Amino acid sequence: MKIMSTHFPRKKIYKGTWRIPGRKETNQIDHVLEQERYTQLIKNVRTYREADVDSDHVLVVVKMKEIAAERKQRKTKTTEIKCNTENLKNVIIAEKHRQEIQDSFNKAMA
């Protein structure tokens, strides 16, 4: 694991993640941890002091690059299955099909 919130250079005023109650001082106690192999995906880590989160903690935001595997997954086309629905108009075939579906569902639930 690697601490990414200290990885990017920031002015001291932007590093604080917790306001000491009753003072204007801040400490950096909230961190972003990331597995070593994913650290190259982190673009930026910063705090937003002006965000109203109703807490003495400051909002910490991480910007990441998009993972290539997810991009590839979105581009894949779904395969279409063609079915002859005319056969389902026959009551005997429809009942046989319904029973097969029910049996496979019961096996999956068992």
Rank of each mutant, 00 (worst) to 15 (best):
F8L: 10
F105V: 15
N90K: 09
E25V: 05
R46Q: 07
T76F: 15
E25N: 08
D56K: 04
V60A: 04
M1F: 03
G22D: 11
K82R: 10
H31W: 13
K77G: 00
V61C: 10
R74V: 06
T26Q: 06
E25W: 06
D54I: 00
R74L: 12
Q102Y: 12
I67P: 13
I92P: 00
D52P: 11
A68F: 09
Q28F: 08
V58Q: 09
E34F: 03
N27K: 14
T85F: 02
V91G: 14
D30L: 07
N87R: 14
E80G: 01
K15Q: 13
R71V: 11
L41Q: 01
A51H: 04
R10P: 02
K75G: 10
Q99Y: 00
Y14P: 01
H7E: 09
S55G: 03
Y14L: 13
M4V: 01
I67Y: 03
R98S: 15
M1I: 11
P9I: 01
T78N: 14
A94L: 14
P21S: 09
R49F: 10
E80R: 00
E80I: 08
M64V: 02
R74C: 05
E36K: 11
R98P: 02
E34V: 09
M1H: 08
L41H: 02
E70H: 12
E36W: 10
V53H: 11
E80T: 05
H57A: 00
L41G: 02
T6N: 09
G22V: 03
L88P: 09
I92Q: 04
K43A: 02
N90S: 07
K89P: 09
R71M: 08
L88F: 15
E70P: 01
H31C: 01
P9V: 12
